[in-house]
Amino acid sequence: MSDSIALMTEGLHKSYGRVVALRGVDLEVRQGEIFGFLGPNGAGKTTTIRCLLDLIRPDSGTLRVLGMDPQADPVGVRARTGYLPGELNLDANLRVREVLRYFSQLRGAKMDWSQVPRLAQRLDLDLETPVKNLSKGNKQKVGVVQALMPQADLLLLDEPTSGLDPLMQQQVHRMLREACAGGATVFFSSHIISEVEALAEHVAIIRDGRIVEVAEPGRLVAMTLRRLHIRFQQPVDVAPLARIEGVSLVGAADRNGMHVTVQVEGEVDRLIKALAAFPVRDLETEHPSLEEVFLAYYQTGKAAGQEDH
């Protein structure tokens, strides 16, 4: 394996009894990059990440993390890795400071505690709050701080912005970019296309335990699927909207053409320009689930079409 590869999996298989979670995952993440791992719930994102830390053992396949085999040297891998689990659970009887102190002690003398108040301040996290009093979002902040505080070479983050408000999401994105600029490799999972698109340099898309695509984030724009609920001030003929490329009507216009729902694949620009000619009262955007996006994307054969480009 090349020195520039931070993380590699080859033919990774994992089953939980009769449930097959991974069906041959092949991944390669270069050192110093932000790599997004996109997939709907249950696709195998968490299972892959947990295999990388030897929390679970794959049935077959090869793993290398920072040049080490996690099963042969799990402590070596973990010493150089910061991890944020998808479902963060902390000892409810401790205060935030005590939890973070414990994690820093587990990392030994190398851990620089001065990082902790700085990170907590940036995330507006009170270190003296008991964990049991934390909201989901604040708990997630503790998770982010504990993952970033060791200034590890590799960050394995399972849905890092889950439960955070948009401002905090932006803050976490900034912190991850800074970590990357400092030389760390960031591998994060998400089921939100826009987040991966905004943050990642490369993206792997996992579905049903298989990597279906590894792409530049720009490719994700084509996969963007939105539903727009449009309310008009007066009845209109919505037929011209349906003729716009990538736009389809969802059901028929109701209330005498006063309200319509359209589905937009890809960029929304053409629709917005067309709507300028309509007496729009209100516009609501809805992001369908990633599974719906994948169904729309892969069932229409666009993936194959784009491969040819």
Binding site: R50, L53, V75, R78, T81, P85, N89, L106, Q146
Partner: peptide, 15 residues
């Protein structure tokens, strides 16, 4: 079962 061990064992601590 509470999911606490997952994060503890992600630190440089052997089983």
């Amino acid at each position: 079962e509470r999911g606490i061990l997952d994060l503890v064992l992600a630190h440089p601590l052997s089983r």
